[in-house]
Every structure is written in structure tokens, then in C-alpha cells.
Design a binder for these strands. Structure first.
Length: 796
RNA sequence: GCUGGGGUGGCGAAAUUGGUAGACGCACUAGCCUUAGGAGUUAGCGGGGCAACCCAUGGGAGUUCGAGUCUCCCCCCCAGCACCA
């Protein structure tokens, strides 16, 4: 009887849904376990095999926990709002709103095929007005708390996507989406004050169980520097000391204060001085103008050749009263510290380079202690962060409209909560304009509104919010949307006024924080930072009772193809469809997991699929074998099992259990292969009991075939996926006889079988009686190293 | 430049955390079965040697009875950050 993966897989997909195998009772479940995976954005033709790799790895964990008796909640949805989906729609010439429906259908079809234990009732899409109503509501809460604000500044602009980008979305000077070089543009935009949470975001990392590399990336991104701010008073070139003016610098090296030979300020700071009345020379003025304009146009990766000009002003080093020149230079960043540095060429490479280029003095003055340096300069200890506020506005169409209204008289007003959601209209001209305005700005029906305060004519904000805002709270959304009685579905007018937690409904409190979150490390400083930030805000707003959203996070590795990154431009992206069609989802799942350690990724090569296909074919053969079934009855109570085989089964249970726990799926699978080999060599000992254990161990990896064997062959009534995970007997695992390695001078000379627990004396006697050993023991033995049941080494 | 992760057969990888290096799988070779096989099955498979054995985990040193594993120096690959004072 040949295994028909197509029939079997679709049969169980239907039954699982009917039997609600993967739908926990969200309200009453005990032992809740929230197993979350990063939801995909449906930007391309279909599901990427890299998505599948991640989802299967997460699902194996979820299935394992479910069999261990947890009520596992494993939801899925689509991150379909935002620039990535919009760019795809633009590329194929479809309207994003129409395309969303097409992609949605296709993605859900594919997500169904891979055989994950998804809780389909709770699925969500970020472009669903029921969903983005809350995205907007969150914006309003942040605005009310002063955490959302408008600011004019030089922001990152992608000339291809025609929108601004957050700092986190600029990767090595390029747009995160389309790899176009990003330029700077001076614009007024909405920001989230994530910097206010810099310290909390940093400290929280110590308390959560996350992949270390993600924690490190976040620490670096937040970039805390401890140092001092020091004031240098200014004198003009004529030497007149005018006590009122000073320049403040930030330094992490106050101990180098006596080596300062100049002060350098950013062009932005110089411009500010001009604005408040500084009478600079023409040459200086024109340098400032030039530096500023270059700063805006320059893409971030250009050469770091430093320019600069002497301002004509001198500063006084507060530690030794030495007069030093104040320079204006483009190597000074405006957005970090005070926008001014003390130049210490002897101890700082950049200062050295600058001093050399402009022939400034280089002092060899000796160091003092940090404390003393601060004291001598009259500075004070300060902390600086590298983290910048999160730029939220996007001049695009396909996103959640920012729920704000601007009135000439009353200023910025939030959209009243009863008017949410601010629906994104279906408009014909959805293409980005490039004018620093969203396409919505051309739509009068959309932007012309009454001021919520004075009822006068007002204008709605026409920018939409960053798609990373959509994904920054979706783990809560799953608990709010699926339940028909949820807050989200029934609306929220007048709700929760007296309630402790707004996101309550009982479910968030019951299921959050998320127990296990699995996803790509590429989101280390994007999604994973934003989610933590919002979770902290929610807690401070008393909307939830936890500050860290994910107790445990594990990053999976990158799946590559024949040694190269899969990408649309290279045309080597693998669509799982044809593999599932040809080999079945179980084979593809196991193949992906067998490639290598889950956190290291792997290289997708067609050749290796054969190994797994053979393996599952042999499992099927054994399950259907006459030789086996003949003994089934007798061995039901373990009677048919040989002691030797039973031992191996229990060792395998231990290994697979521990390996799954640590996400070492590749070695779990190899342990199953070893056991299968044993089964084949001892068919007469493989009865129902043995096969049941094996099938259970296989279930997380190959959910369809194991269910088929479990129910159709082994005739169990309920799904294997809620059957209890096998336990191993640690007594059984201990061997009665052990292999003891015998070495002479640390060279392996023999392996002898001895009863477990043999003493050093017994082992020595046995070893000396062994021909292979005795011939090496001619010279006197100087030393013996012995490890019980393992090892003996004679040093001669 | 800084931070992190790596470097083991022809290939993907294991290695109980200092104790038999290469489990498991792919590819390959030979045999069997078959009208046939891109099926199944048996055996072999790091290099050298008839053998006893010897050599081998990027390179070099060190610690140790013993090092893929620990320490130091160097080389290479991947990922992230990058004028952050």
C-alpha cells in the first residue's frame, strides 16, 4: 500500500479543523502556552520557502509543547499593510487594495498546506479596518501621553519609494525595502519618543531569554555612552572674554581634558549661533551654508573626508585656562550629544585626522583620572544614547492613516475615538507622489474635515503610519480579533473606563506575555525593538500588566539556495508549492529541519530531499508490515520488545525530547533515523507499543503521516497531536555493560566490554589481560587515569 | 575599524562540553534483485600503508596523562553596526 501524501494531508487538514485540534479554549484554558511566529508580509507571488522554514521550526516547538500537555495558542496572520506589499502591487500594476485580497487567498492556501497547527479562528490582517482601528487608537494614546510629536528635521528620504524612513530602516545607507541610496530631506514629520524608553529598553534585555545576538544588536543600537558634559567659555579673537557665552561638549574621555587642542562644532550648531546673532565672517558663513546643503544631499555612505573652517572664536579649556580655537566641521554630528566635541588628537583617531589635515596642535599632555578630569573641568557626568526617535509618517497610500486633524485655530487634534477607524479610501491615484505628501493629500473627500474642537474647517493628516507600527502590537491583536465578543469586534465606545487594563477582555492577561517567539534576526533593531517599546508604553498606560512582550525569543538562521541568498532579483526564490505537490509537506518539513541547526539556517539543495523521502517511506513500510503486526498483541504490554530494543527506544525518547527543547531539530531527526534502523533490524520485536512511541516522537516533524499511522493503523480515536508525549525511564537507559576505552600514553589501544560500575582494579586487570594492551605495557606504569564506566589511560 | 557567529571527509553535518573524531543523511563504488530504474537491498566509503600502525578538525605555539573542545598569536568566511566623540 503506497502512501498517498496528497490524500492523507488534505484529509487531516479538514479533520483537524473540524475537531478543533489546534483551537485552545482561549477563555478557560489551563496551562496556556502562547507560541508565536513572525507573521509574513504577502508581498510576492506566494509563500517563500524561507517563511516555511521559520514557521515549521516554530510549529515543531508548538506541537511538542501541546503534546506535553500545554494548551498551545499558535496564531497566524498577514502583515499585509505597508510599503512592502504596496511596492509589490505597484510593480505588477495592481491596486494595493485589490491585490491584498488576491495575496491573502493565496497565502492562506499555502499556509494551510505546510501542515502547521495554526489557530485559524484568530487569524488577522493588518489592513483590516477592524485591526487598524486599533493601530490608530494606539497612535492617539501615545499622542495624549506626549509620546507622539511633530518635528522638523533632516530625515531619511528614499528617492525610489518616495517616502521618509526611520533610522532603523536605513541599512548601510540604503532603503531597507529597495536598496536605493537614502538621502536627507528637511521635513516636518510625526515621531514616537522611543528615546524616552532608551534606558528601560536597555535594562529590560537583562531579564528576558532571547537569542544573545539580538540582545547585543539592540544594545549596540541603543548605544548608551557614559561620559561628561563640559562647558568651554568663549572669547573672541581679540581676546576679550565675554563670560556669557560658552560651548558645551560631550565626551566619554574626560580623562583627556589636558590634551584638548581645539573645539569643533557641527554646521547645524553654527547655523543656530548665526540665527541668534553671531556676526561671523563671510567665509565662515558660506562654509556653513555649503556644509549644511551637502549634509542634506549627501548619501550616508559617501567618503568620510573631513572639511572644516576656523570660526574666528577661541574657547577656554576650563581645566587649564588655555585658549584654543573653535572650528566648524562636518565630521561633527548634529543629532548626537551636544553637537560639539573637544578635540583631543592624541587620543582620538578622528580628532587626529582633523588636526593633521588643518595643522592643529597635537598635545602629548598626560592623562588624569576620569573623576579628576570631570572635577578639574567643572563638568558633570552625563549619559548619551545613540538611539533616535522613531519616525512614524510615511508619504504613501497603503497604510493606516494617522488619526490626526489640523485646525488653523486649534492646532493639532486627535480624531475622536468614536470616529475610528479613519478608513483608508479606495482611490485611483494611489501612486507615491514624490512631493513629500501622500497621495491622499490630493483627495479632498478624505482630508477635508471639521475640527473636532471648534467645528471649523480643518485638514486631516494625509500621511499614513509606518508599517512597523502595525506589527508592533499584533500579538495582542490575535487575542482581540478572533473572539467575536472581543473588545475589537464589539467596538470600544465607553469601554474600559473603570477597567484596570484596556486590552483586557481577560485574554491578554491570560495569554501574555508570549511564551515563545520565533523569527528572523534581521528584525533585531526594527520590529523587535519597536514591539518592546510599545509594550512598555502599554504597561505605563495601564493597558496591560507586562513590560516585556516576549519571554523567550529565538532567531532562526537564514535559508539560502546553492550557497547564495534567495532573492527575487536573482530569480532563485523557492516556492514550496511544487515540493509539497511532489513530495508532500511532511517530507519538505523534515528536509528543511534536517539541513542543519535551526539557528544556523541551511542551504536548500534538491539532492538531500531523497534521504527524508526514503526515511518516511520506510516508516510507512514498517507501520504496514506483516512481520511487525504479527507480534503486535504480545508486545502491547512491552512483552514483545527485546530488552535491548527497549533500551534504545528510551534513549531515543530522551535525546529527541532534549533536542526539541533546544531547537536542535536536525539531531532529533537523526536520532529517529537511528531508531528506525534498529526497528528494521529487529522487526519481530516491534509491536504496537513500540510503533506508538516512535510515531509520537515523529509527530511534531511529520504531522500528517504520524496522524495517519496513529489513527488508521494503530486505531487510536483522538488525534496524535494531543496525545501525551512519551516519557523515558532513566533506569532503562543505563547500560548493564559498558564500553571502556583503554589508552596507553593517551593513544587509544582497545575498547573492552565490562559490566557497568567496574572498579579501577577490575578494569586494570581486564586491560592487562588484553593482548592489544599488554604489549604496550612492557615498561613500568608511571600513572593511571581512570574514569568509571568510560575510560582508563596508562602512562608509561 | 568595532561587535557577534563560524572554519571538521567530495557535500550537509555529529561529537555526552577535556576522554573511541566524522553519528545521521546526501553523493560515490561494488554486489544482489529486476525486462527496466532517477526503485529496493547488501557491503564499502577522511588520507597513507599488505599489515602492525601512522597522519588528520584553517595555520602556529602553549596548558594537560589526554585538545575539534581551554589559553595566546595569525589567516580566512558570514552577519550586524559604522565619523555616536
Amino acid at each position: 500500500m503506497k502512501y498517498n501524501h496528497k490524500k492523507v494531508e488534505s484529509k487531516w487538514h479538514k479533520k483537524w479543523v473540524l475537531e478543533k485540534v489546534y483551537e485552545p479554549d482561549l477563555k478557560n484554558a489551563k496551562n496556556s502556552y502562547y507560541n508565536l511566529m513572525m507573521f509574513p508580509y504577502p508581498s510576492a507571488e506566494g509563500l517563500h520557502v524561507g517563511n516555511m522554514y521559520a514557521f515549521v521550526g516554530s510549529d515543531i516547538h508548538g506541537r511538542f509543547k501541546r503534546m506535553q500537555g500545554f494548551n498551545v495558542f499558535e496564531p497566524i496572520g498577514l502583515d499585509g499593510f505597508g510599503i512592502h506589499s504596496e511596492n509589490y502591487a505597484l510593480k505588477i500594476g495592481e491596486h494595493p487594495m485589490d491585490q491584498a485580497r488576491v495575496s491573502e487567498k493565496n497565502f492562506y492556501r499555502q499556509l494551510q498546506m505546510i501542515g502547521n497547527g495554526f489557530a485559524w479562528n484568530e487569524k488577522l490582517e493588518t489592513y483590516d479596518p477592524e485591526y487598524y482601528k486599533w493601530t490608530q487608537w494606539i497612535f492617539i494614546q501615545l499622542y495624549k501621553k506626549g509620546l507622539a510629536y511633530r518635528k522638523k528635521s533632516a530625515v531619511n528620504w528614499c528617492p525610489s519609494c518616495l517616502t521618509v524612513l526611520a533610522d532603523e530602516q536605513v541599512i548601510s545607507g540604503e532603503c531597507e525595502r529597495c536598496n536605493t541610496k537614502v538621502i536627507k530631506k528637511e521635513l516636518e514629520q510625526w515621531f514616537f519618543r522611543i528615546t524616552k524608553y532608551a534606558d528601560k529598553l536597555l535594562k529590560g534585555l537583562d531579564k528576558i531569554d532571547w537569542s544573545e545576538k539580538v540582545k547585543i544588536a539592540q544594545r549596540n543600537w541603543i548605544g548608551k555612552s557614559e561620559g561628561a558634559s563640559i562647558k568651554f567659555s568663549l572669547v573672541d579673537v581679540t581676546g576679550q572674554k565675554n563670560g556669557k557665552h560658552f560651548v558645551e561638549v560631550f565626551t566619554t574621555r574626560p580623562d583627556t581634558i589636558f590634551g584638548v587642542t581645539f573645539v569643533a562644532i557641527s554646521p547645524e550648531k553654527a547655523k543656530f549661533w548665526l540665527d541668534i546673532g553671531w556676526q561671523a565672517g563671510e567665509e565662515v558663513k558660506s562654509y556653513i551654508t555649503k556644509a549644511l546643503s551637502e549634509r542634506v544631499a549627501k548619501d550616508q555612505n559617501q567618503d568620510k573626508d573631513k572639511s572644516g573652517i576656523f570660526s574666528g572664536i577661541l574657547a577656554v579649556n576650563p581645566a587649564n585656562n588655555e585658549k584654543i580655537p573653535v572650528w566648524i566641521s562636518d565630521y561633527i554630528l548634529a543629532g548626537y550629544g551636544t553637537g560639539a566635541v573637544m578635540g583631543v588628537p592624541a587620543h582620538d583617531e578622528r580628532d587626529f585626522e582633523f588636526a593633521k589635515k588643518f595643522e592643529l596642535a597635537i598635545s602629548d599632555a598626560s592623562l588624569v583620572s576620569i573623576e579628576e578630569g570631570i572635577k578639574k573641568s567643572g563638568g558633570k557626568k552625563t549619559v548619551q544614547f545613540r538611539l533616535r526617535d522613531w519616525l512614524i509618517s510615511r508619504q504613501r497610500y497603503w497604510g493606516a492613516p494617522i488619526p490626526m486633524i489640523h485646525c488653523e485655530k486649534c492646532g493639532w487634534q486627535t480624531v475622536p475615538e468614536k470616529d475610528l477607524p479613519v478608513r483608508l479610501p479606495y482611490i485611483k491615484n494611489f501612486r507615491p507622489t514624490g512631493t513629500s505628501e501622500s497621495p491622499l493629500a490630493a483627495n479632498e473627500n478624505f482630508y477635508k474635515v471639521k475640527c473636532p474642537k471648534c467645528e471649523g474647517v480643518a485638514r486631516r493628516e494625509t500621511d499614513v503610519s509606518d508599517t512597523f507600527l502595525d506589527s508592533a502590537w499584533y500579538y495582542l491583536g490575535y487575542l482581540m480579533l478572533g473572539n467575536k465578543k472581543s473588545l475589537l469586534r464589539r467596538g470600544y465606545a465607553g469601554q474600559a473606563k473603570n477597567k484596570k487594563f484596556y486590552f483586557d477582555g481577560g485574554l491578554v492577561k491570560k495569554w501574555c506575555p508570549v511564551n515563545m517567539y520565533i523569527g528572523g534576526a534581521e528584525h533585531s533593531v526594527l520590529h523587535l525593538l519597536y514591539v518592546r517599546f510599545l509594550a512598555m508604553v502599554f504597561k505605563d498606560l495601564r493597558l496591560t500588566n507586562f513590560g516585556e512582550p516576549f519571554k523567550k525569543f529565538r532567531a532562526h538562521g537564514l535559508l539560502i539556495k546553492d550557497g547564495a541568498k534567495m532573492s527575487k532579483s536573482k530569480g532563485n526564490v523557492i516556492n514550496p508549492d511544487e515540493y509539497i505537490k511532489n513530495y508532500g509537506a511532511d517530507v519538505l518539513r523534515m528536509y528543511l529541519m534536517f539541513l542543519g541547526p535551526f539557528d544556523q539556517g541551511g542551504d536548500f539543495r534538491d539532492g538531500g530531499i531523497k534521504g527524508i523521502t526514503r526515511f518516511l517511506d520506510r516508516v510507512w513500510k514498517i507501520a504496514n508490515s506483516d512481520k511487525r503486526s504479527h507480534y503486535a498483541k504480545a508486545s502491547r504490554d512491552g512483552q514483545g520488545t527485546s530488552e535491548e530494543l527497549n533500551k534504545k527506544i528510551h534513549k531515543t525518547i530522551k535525546k529527541v525530547t532534549e533536542d526539541i527543547e533546544n531547537l536542535n531539530y536536525n539531531t532529533s531527526i537523526s536520532a529517529l533515523m537511528v531508531l528506525l534502523n534498529e526497528f528494521e533490524a529487529n522487526m519481530e520485536s516491534v509491536g504496537k507499543n513500540e510503533l506508538e512511541i516512535f510515531t509520537k516522537l515523529l509527530a511534531p516533524f511529520a504531522p500528517h503521516m504520524s496522524e495517519e499511522v496513529w489513527r488508521e493503523i494503530l486505531k487510536n480515536k483522538k488525534s496524535i497531536h494531543i496525545a501525551p508525549w512519551p516519557k523515558f525511564d532513566s533506569k532503562l537507559i543505563k547500560d548493564a555493560e559498558v564500553d571502556v576505552v583503554v589508552q596507553v600514553n593517551a593513544k587509544m589501544r582497545a575498547v573492552i566490554k565490562l559490566p557497568a560500575g567496574a572498579s579501577q582494579k577490575d578494569v586494570e586487570i581486564a586491560a592487562k589481560n588484553n593482548e592489544n594492551i599488554s604489549k604496550y605495557l612492557i615498561s613500568p606504569i608511571k600513572k593511571v587515569i581512570f574514569i568509571k564506566d568510560k575510560f582508563i589511560n596508562f602512562v608509561v
